[in-house]
Amino acid sequence: MKRNEPLINLFGLILIILLAVLVYLALTDSGQGLTMLSADLEQRVSYSYLLKNVTAAGQTENQHGQAEVILGREDYENGAVNIVTAIVTDYRMLDTFGEILVLFAASAGVGLLMVERKRGKAKEASEIVKTAVPIIILFTLITGFYIISHGHLTPGGGFPGGAVIASAFILQFLAFQKSSRNKVFKILESLAGIGLLAMGLIGLYLEGSLFANFLPNGSLGATISAAGIMIIYALIGIKVAAELSSISADFIGE
C-alpha cells in the first residue's frame, strides 16, 4: 500500500491549524458568561480543602470555629499538611481507588498477553555490577519506604514510592537474571487490594461511609499523624510496587 506521505502531512497540518483556530475562538469569545479561568481560588472546591473546612461546608470556619489552619493543633480533617495527598487519599478516594484498578487491569492485561518464552543465554552481568546492585537496592528500598511514609507531609506517597520500590526489583532482575518471583507479587497484589477494601469497609461500618477516615488524625504537621492516610498509602505503595514489578517481570520474561 503506497501512501503519499507529504500530502498526508499537509492535510494533517491544515486540520491541526483549523482546530487551533477554532479552540482559540471558543476560548476568547467575548460573549456573556463564565469561561476558562473565571473561577478564582475562593470559588473553587479547593478553597475548602486548603482551609480544611469541608465538613462545615458553606461556612468559612472549620471544626475549630476558625477560618484558619494552625500547625500543631490536633484533629483537623484527615490531618495531612500536604493538601494534594489529602485530596488523593481522602476527599476523592474513589478516584484513587479507580486509579489502582486501572493499574491492576493493566498489570493483569500484560500478564494475560505476554507469553513466557525461552530466552537465549543472556550475557552475565559483571562482578562489579553484581557487587554494587545489592547496596543500591538497599538504598532504593529505603528511599521508597521514606517516600511512602511521608506522603502526608511532603510530595510523594504511595504511587511514586511504589514505583521506586519496583525499580529496585527491576534492578535485581537485570543484574542477576533471576526468573521473576511472580507468586509473591501475585499474593501481595491480592492482599494489598483486599486490605484497601477492608479499610473502606471498616470506614463504612464505623463512620457510615465507604473510605471514611476512622483513625485519629494526630497533630497537624507531625511526622506520625494522619494515621488513615499513612495506612492507605502503605497499602497503595505495596500494591503499586507489586503491579509494576509484575508488569516489568512480564516484559523481561518475554
Partner: peptide, 9 residues
C-alpha cells in the same frame, strides 16, 4: 499546596 505555616482566610 503544602501547609508549611499556619494560614488564615
Amino acid at each position: 499546596p503544602i501547609l508549611t505555616n499556619s494560614v488564615s482566610a
